[in-house]
Simulated assay, not measured.
Amino acid sequence: MRARSSSRPFAQVDVFGASPFRGNPLAVVLDADGLDEGTMRAFASWTNLSETTFVLPPTQEGADYRVRILTPSTELDFAGHPTLGTAAAWLAAGGVPAGERIVQECGAGLVEVRRDEAAGTLAFAAPPLRRGGPLEAEHVGAAAAALGIDPGAVRGHAWVDNGAGWCVLELGSAAEVLALAPDLAAIPARKIAALGVVGPTGTDGADGAAYEVRGFVAADPESGTAGYEDPVTGSLNAGIAQWMLERGALTPPWTAHQGTALRRDGLVHLDVDADGTVWVGGTVRVDLRGSIDI
């Protein structure tokens, strides 16, 4: 039986936007303790956002809180913009981390989030890849076909899966990335849930960005969820950064741009500590605060 609805603190957050309302929105239920599975899934479907998060008491030592990350059709072990958005909403609601950094517990384990109060940004420590290495030839062909390009246009490719299922194809320029007109129904979802594309911006990059990114999510016929393009994607950008560093393709720090094709303006800042930790950050704005009867 579903638990009786109650009023709970709620926030809607805009993550990675270079200016207000130009990033990736997120819904956050700040006190989800006691909510049953069916209610969470129904609410995540109702918000119709790429992700909705639910904040719960931690179960692992050292965590400040636990989060569940739900899409309209499934649950993710990890996702980037929900990690930063949840941390920002938790802080705005009066959350106080036990240590210098916020420590979030999620399906991928413990993820650290650090604050740069002067810059007004948050950044998460990228979790290790669950799957890396080049794509299979068959998968490259299927992905290229879904994007409407010749496989010969692909300059590089890799799995960059840190819990969200991403792979990446590298094209020759940002212009090629922005010209894509993908068939979202044809994205090869047999092995992955999403497809990322990156191309260098050259000297014309948005706000000095090193490259332009687009991320496409396959349709889910079981739930009836249509395929879509994600506005700004922290987990994909984290995986791309790890791939760039592995190849020595870029020297940190750098900035990636995403969202142009959707009239968004997402800026993702990438940096690396001396110990090799990749940090993925950007601006987070808590745009709406109140309560939700759920």
Rank of each mutant, 00 (worst) to 15 (best):
R66V: 02
I192G: 12
A3D: 14
G202Y: 15
G199M: 04
D36V: 04
T47H: 03
N162H: 01
A87L: 00
S5Q: 13
V198W: 13
W279F: 12
L262V: 13
A88D: 11
Q258H: 11
F10H: 05
L250Y: 12
A79S: 09
Q242W: 04
T39V: 14
V154R: 03
A186R: 12
R130V: 09
L262T: 11
C167W: 07
P252F: 10
I69L: 03
D14G: 05
Y211W: 08
A153H: 11
G282I: 03
L147K: 01
Y211Q: 02
A108N: 03
Q258V: 03
A158Y: 08
G141F: 01
V198S: 06
V55F: 04
G23I: 04
R155L: 12
D31N: 03
S19T: 15
R2D: 11
S173C: 12
T59K: 05
H157K: 09
I192K: 12
V113W: 00
E37A: 14
Q242A: 03
T121V: 02
G234L: 00
F21C: 13
E112L: 02
G234Q: 05
S173P: 15
L184H: 05
V96P: 06
W90Y: 09
R8N: 12
T203R: 14
P253D: 06
D273C: 13
E75A: 03
G290H: 07
G120R: 08
E51G: 00
S73T: 08
N24V: 13
A261R: 12
D287R: 14
P252H: 10
G141Q: 09
L26F: 04
G248H: 11
S235G: 09
P82C: 10
A210V: 10
V278M: 13
G152D: 15
P231R: 02
T260C: 08
E75I: 06
A193G: 15
A3H: 15
I187W: 05
A174V: 04
A238I: 10
G156I: 06
A87Y: 05
V13K: 02
S50P: 09
E136V: 04
V278G: 06
L135T: 04
S6P: 00
P221A: 05
A144C: 07
A186W: 01
A11R: 06
L84G: 13
T277F: 14
A87F: 03
S235N: 07
G34T: 10
G34K: 10
R4V: 11
F54Q: 07
S6K: 06
A179P: 14
G205D: 06
A181F: 10
A209Y: 04
L26E: 04
F43S: 04
V160Q: 06
V113L: 03
G259N: 06
G266Q: 06
G17E: 10
R247T: 09
D31H: 01
A153I: 01
A142H: 02
F10Y: 15
T251I: 10
R66N: 08
V113F: 00
G99L: 04
A189F: 08
E117R: 00
T74W: 09
A256G: 15
A158F: 12
A93K: 01
V140C: 09
M1C: 10
T260G: 05
Q104E: 05
A118I: 00
V13F: 02
D273V: 11
A238Q: 09
P231H: 01
W279H: 06
F16P: 14
A142N: 03
T53H: 05
Q12G: 07
T59R: 07
Q258K: 05
S45G: 13
E51Q: 00
G224P: 01
S173D: 11
P188E: 10
F21W: 14
D36P: 05
G156P: 11
